[in-house]
Amino acid sequence: MTECTEAYNLSELVSETNTNLKKVKCLRCDSFILQPNSGLFTKLEMSLSIPALRQKKSIVTGDSIEYELLQNFWIVNDAFTFENIGFTNTVDNKKYLICADCEIGPLGVQNLDNPNEFYLSIDRVKHVN
């Protein structure tokens, strides 16, 4: 909970019905990811540990992946709710969400134990009107 620098103000992002007020886009390339009012805001009590966007070391060996704890998500219940999104291959029973255009990621995660819940990290996207 210490690391999450809230560069955004949640009250400006979350609607009264707890959904995303604004369009969600890729931080890097502006790809349109989610329509307004399509994801349900969730602040997790137990943060999810998700690989960092930028890995400092080379991770060819796979044993030195850097993770980041993330707490705020838009939960989407149907993959086709996304405007544009990519899915990685499965690792540890999870698929990671990536930008469909520039392939930056992970932007979120789908745990295949709960395949109908797609967690899109609020920290790793941008919100625009």
Binding site: R54, Q55, I59, T88, Y96, P106
Partner: peptide, 10 residues
Amino acid sequence: ATFISTIGID
């Protein structure tokens, strides 16, 4: 050598 290109896209 990013995480994504290591695991590949489905």
